[in-house]
Design a protein around this nucleic acid. Structure first.
Ligand SMILES: [Mn+2]
Ligand SMILES: [Mn+2]
Ligand SMILES: [Zn+2]
Ligand SMILES: [Zn+2]
Lengths: 141, 141
DNA sequence: TCCATATCTGTAATCATTTCAATTGTAAAA
DNA sequence: TTTTACAATTGAAATGATTACAGATATGGA
């Protein structure tokens, strides 16, 4: 609730007018940390903001990405996900439970020969597999 | 042309009946090395195989992926691309010319934290930026 | 308050992908 | 060789995600 104040000024700082919908969508990203799809955001917020339009969710996320306060995560080709953490970090998707985990990695000492003279703007590392929790469950079965 | 023989037996080996369309699509992937979209494959092959259906391209790529002889590359959320090189390797996409470059990297150098006990099945490293060629062109302007 | 502009909304259009049923091709049995 | 069963291909229709658009609503300053 009081978060609204912080988020409001954060959006202003990013050059975004802090409308009610924009604040709630950004707040959703920050609080849930779930790398959601548009559908997830829309469904979850719709119970709280019944007048919300899915178009607004699309528009708002596009704005966030354009203004550089959100990044697109494309681990699967059939679902676009969004992440308010714009730092370079990795994503692990569990193919069993579907959860997405953040992790850190070094990209400094990669010194890749084939693209030495290329100008790097974004680095995305995606790993798929089985999370620790699911591994345990599967062993028990 | 004589490739057909090799590709045919390669497909058989992978448990895939080597139909004319399947051979041509796999041959396309191998020869072009362009990480194409379905649309690219369809358009390029259609002039050579006028009866080709886009559905066949979809079906065939799905089959290749299921049988493990092709991997899906999702650098952008709005274009699914295909790669017959199923080894773990990185992809660089130039945001200027759109070209996709392969590069090799060593997982060990990534020094990944937080997912030590997770079971890794696939690793995808995608980098976006400007390729060497485009960098030169842009400087000249 | 009033006005100009930005934002939001719902619907329609677009585009990629999947589903489906009919047709065609293939490979082995008769 | 002909028949037969099954696999692959095809094109049309359905689905689902995203975008375009135009009208309604909200906002902030004169
Ligand atoms: Mn993240
Ligand atoms: Mn590749
Ligand atoms: Zn899991
Ligand atoms: Zn380039």
């Amino acid at each position: 609730m009081e978060q609204t104040q912080n988020i409001g000024s954060f959006l202003i700082n990013a050059g975004i007018r802090p409308s009610f919908q924009r604040i709630k969508i950004y707040e959703y990203l920050i609080i849930r940390k779930n790398h959601p799809t548009v559908e997830m955001i829309y469904k979850d917020l719709n119970s709280y903001i019944p007048t919300l339009s899915k178009t607004t969710v699309y528009n708002t996320l596009k704005l966030f990405v354009d203004k550089g306060i959100t990044q697109i995560i494309t681990i699967e080709d059939n679902e676009t996900r969004y992440d308010p953490d714009i730092s370079t970090h990795g994503h692990f998707k569990c193919t069993n439970c579907g959860k997405i985990f953040d992790f850190s990695f070094d990209n400094k000492n990669l010194n890749i020969k084939q693209i030495e003279n290329f100008e790097i703007k974004q680095t995305h590392l995606y790993i798929k597999g089985i999370c620790e929790n699911c591994k345990r469950k599967i062993i028990i079965k």
